[in-house]
Computed example of a mutant assay.
Amino acid sequence: MSELKTKENDADVYAFIDAYANTEQKKSDSYELIKLMTLVTGEPPRMWGTSIIGFGKYHYKSERSSQEGDWPIIGFSPRKTALSLYVFTGLEEHESMLTDLGKFKKGKACIYVKKLSDIDVTVLEKLMRFTVDFMKRTYGVN
């Protein structure tokens, strides 16, 4: 079994944003996401790997492979082309929660937005709270 490369570490979240976010808009949006995700989770921001900011964590074991490890409950990354928001379960039955979100693209369990003003942040907060509750129930996180 290969070891996960993306792990929680002690790198400075704010220094990462200042160095990595390629526009002032992404920096500003990143600071807003930190406030919102801290409020929703009650957890401080932590770096995961070299480019993900995560909040809280859970331990998973894949049913399809022998892979297991820790991962943030929710998080984001200010990537070059968009903000990657790790705030969605990816489950088909949760798709309806995205209806009123606004302008975004969706990956399997990730949402991509160009800027926060493209989406309804109230809906984003609701989605995050649902995801946090789901992850806590599913993985027994306190």
Score class of each variant (00 low, 15 high):
115 K>C: 06
38 T>D: 05
100 D>V: 00
75 G>A: 06
97 M>R: 15
98 L>Q: 08
90 G>S: 06
64 R>F: 11
39 L>W: 04
104 F>T: 01
51 S>A: 13
116 L>T: 07
46 R>N: 07
60 Y>M: 04
18 D>K: 15
135 M>S: 07
59 H>T: 13
92 E>W: 02
19 A>C: 04
90 G>N: 09
139 Y>P: 13
134 F>M: 04
51 S>Y: 10
108 K>G: 02
33 L>A: 05
121 V>H: 07
9 N>W: 11
40 V>H: 01
68 E>P: 00
126 K>Q: 12
77 S>R: 15
101 L>Y: 02
22 N>E: 00
39 L>D: 15
120 D>F: 02
24 E>F: 02
99 T>P: 02
21 A>M: 12
71 W>G: 02
39 L>E: 15
21 A>Q: 08
26 K>M: 02
131 T>A: 03
18 D>C: 04
71 W>H: 00
42 G>C: 09
113 V>I: 15
96 S>L: 05
27 K>Q: 13
99 T>F: 00
98 L>S: 02
30 S>C: 10
67 Q>V: 10
75 G>D: 01
73 I>W: 03
20 Y>L: 05
102 G>R: 04
136 K>D: 09
51 S>I: 06
9 N>H: 12
21 A>H: 14
105 K>W: 00
114 K>N: 12
94 H>K: 05
112 Y>F: 11
112 Y>P: 01
32 E>F: 01
132 V>K: 10
39 L>R: 12
99 T>L: 09
122 T>Q: 10
83 L>T: 00
69 G>C: 08
79 R>M: 00
